[in-house]
């Protein structure tokens, strides 16, 4: 069994993982936040794309379950000598890990790794396809705040077309009973979106007061919005979560962001630190859901 995308898992299964993550949150609050559940297991972290938070979160999760971790990054490795992904993961498999966590710039790469190695694989982000553990962390964050996702309206705002976070979150939030509306300029909304279980809007102002969760995606400032919208200023004026828009929100509604944030672009500086911005909860919950996924895939002993 692997954990490659959200669609492969039904509501019962997703909720079981979230319930387990709730238990691990309690573990993480203990004076010695560690259980021996996966003692003797080895997890290979294979990150072909730069990642700090996701890699560290997986590492923290593995260690809290007492598993050993092997880290692999392509720079300075045999990959720079032209070794293929297949040869690399077969080589790593020969060192005996029990599970692989894979991040790769190409959609479907973790699926190939699972097929080649026969090992359980967790997708830690593949191209613009999926980032399923992020979706679980975000689902847990919303569930903790509101008690459930049923009936909530979640707005996802930003570069949805190129976002793996958007794809896995849409799948997870809707599977758990929330309604999702995507908000972006047309060039950042998905094309041919008949299969997306969502509604779409090109105006944040029109819908902001109806949202329970305002979920902001990172705008790739390094691309300067090249070719997808005319200027960052224009983006902020239409889609940035400014103080004015924050005041228009329902007082119970919350703000989320998968990080790293561009303060002053998709989110105003002051809002990022507001009590209703759950950004850091998302990060802490990320560790707990990754513990839950690891535990379930490796058949850890619950009473260990």
């Amino acid at each position: 069994m692997s954990f490659l995308d959200i669609e492969g898992h039904d509501r019962t299964d997703l909720e079981a993982t979230l319930d387990l993550a709730d238990e691990f949150i309690e573990v993480l609050r203990r004076p010695i936040p560690r259980v021996p559940a996966l003692q003797g297991k080895t997890i290979a972290h294979i990150f072909y794309e730069a990642s700090t938070r996701t890699r560290l979160s997986f590492e923290r999760a593995a260690k809290a379950l007492s598993a050993d971790v092997m880290n692999f990054a392509p720079s300075g490795s045999s990959v720079s000598k032209g070794e293929s992904l297949k040869d690399t993961v077969l080589t790593l498999r020969a060192m005996g890990p029990d599970l692989m966590v894979v991040r790769h710039g190409a959609a479907g790469a973790p699926h190939r790794v699972a097929a080649w190695t026969g090992l359980p694989v967790i997708n830690a982000g593949d191209g613009a396809h999926q980032h399923p553990t992020q979706a679980l962390a975000d689902s847990l964050t919303i569930r903790t705040r509101f008690g459930k996702l049923d009936g909530l309206r979640v707005g996802i705002i930003g570069d949805i077309r190129h976002s793996r976070v958007a794809r896995s979150n849409v799948a997870a939030f809707t599977a758990l009973g929330a309604e999702v509306v995507l908000v972006a300029p047309r060039t950042l909304l998905p094309v041919s979106s008949a299969e997306w279980p969502v509604t779409m809007s090109e105006s944040l102002d029109e819908i902001i007061e109806d949202l329970d969760v305002v979920y902001l995606l990172r705008i790739q400032v390094e691309r300067g919005g090249a070719c997808v919208f005319p200027s960052l200023t224009e983006y902020v004026s239409r889609f940035g979560l400014t103080s004015r828009r924050f005041s228009a929100m329902n007082p119970e509604a919350v703000v989320m962001h998968p990080g790293p944030m561009n303060r002053g672009i998709e989110i105003a500086d002051s809002i990022a630190d507001d009590e209703r911005a759950l950004v850091l909860d998302q990060v802490s919950n990320g560790v707990a859901v990754r513990m839950a996924v690891l535990f379930r895939l490796l058949g850890g002993d619950r009473n260990g």
């Binding site: 191209g127 999926q130 041919s192 979106s193 008949a194 997306w196």
Partner: peptide, 12 residues
Amino acid sequence: HEGTVSSWLGMR
């Protein structure tokens, strides 16, 4: 092909 499948897979 740009269509429903690429849209959901997130492939260029």
